[in-house]
Amino acid sequence: MQKTALVPYTRLPRAHHDCHVLTSTVDAFGAAHWLLAERAPAPRGVVRPFDALVVSVHADGNVGLTGLSAVQARWPHLDRLPDGGFVVAAARARRDDAVHQVQIFDESGRETTAFSVGDAIEHMLVDEAGHLWVGHFDENPDGINRWSATGRRTWTSDGARIPGLLDCYALNVSGTAAWACPYTDFPLVEIHPGRPVKVRANTVRGAHAVAVHGERVAFYGGYGEERDRLVHGALTATSIQPAEVGLLTLPDGTPPGRRRAVARGSRIYVQAEPFTAWNVFDLNG
């Protein structure tokens, strides 16, 4: 089986390697961000507000530091807003703290607003217009929604006729549009707010990231021994035509192991444990 090696993208500066990495992401403009704390939050019990640091490495190599005060999330998602602020969202929301589930911080690190988007967040990605795309896993039937940075829902999958939408396995946000590949039927769903959703039938099961460029698509991940699978395909008007099947590896040819992935347009960014470096696969490469 053909192997495709990821290409090194960017790294967390060594001066911050002693901190605990709560989460990390790559934003809509290609900058990488790490949310760091002195220690990991306790696995159980009430999360007490804590201070955190966002380390940002921009595409030109410049490094930015933003301190965030009174972060509430035990298992956070992170992304950057176009105005320089940040979004921190807790994956799980309890009734007693739901109002603090999503925290919006300005560019100086001060919380400006907080709101809830519902429990069981699988993906949270900010688009170029500053809207939050949220995909839920199967403990919440809300599917996929788009929110403003003030907590107003601007798009919902309710009524969009997406078959088998029980869990948003894969979400790709690029520009102001989104692509999704949800469990159980795994269609490739193309979403442009203000237009009808386009649904293409797909036989590739279990992918956790998807890249799209023109009429080409690539699915990354799968079940069991297929967790490192990379499937290339072609878009038709109604379906995906799978083509080449291979494996996606780290730059040195080894399997990524425990990792996270972020999909943006033609790119899938992959970060393997200890989560201090991002590598990239580009379908347009």
Rank of each mutant, 00 (worst) to 15 (best):
T10N: 11
R14I: 13
H20P: 02
T23L: 05
T25F: 05
A32H: 15
W34S: 03
L36Y: 00
G45V: 14
D60Y: 14
N62A: 15
V63K: 04
A70P: 03
V71P: 00
A73D: 02
R74H: 07
H77P: 05
L78Q: 12
R80T: 00
V87D: 00
V88H: 11
A90S: 06
A91Q: 07
V99L: 12
V102T: 02
F105G: 08
D106V: 06
R110L: 00
E111G: 15
G118I: 00
A120C: 12
I121G: 06
L125N: 10
V126W: 02
R146Y: 08
W155T: 13
D158I: 02
D158M: 01
R161C: 09
R161F: 05
L166M: 08
C168V: 10
C168P: 08
V173H: 05
T176H: 11
A178F: 03
W179G: 11
C181V: 15
F186G: 01
F186Y: 13
P187I: 14
P193G: 01
G194S: 03
P196M: 13
V197A: 10
V197H: 04
K198G: 10
R200T: 15
T203K: 08
R205H: 08
V210K: 14
V212I: 11
G214N: 07
V217G: 00
A218Y: 13
H232T: 11
H232A: 10
T236P: 03
I240P: 09
P242R: 03
A243S: 08
V245Q: 11
L250F: 02
R258W: 15
R258G: 03
A261L: 05
A263Q: 09
G265H: 03
S266W: 01
V270E: 06
V270L: 11
F275K: 02
W278T: 00
N279P: 00
V280A: 12
V280R: 15
F281C: 07
G285A: 08
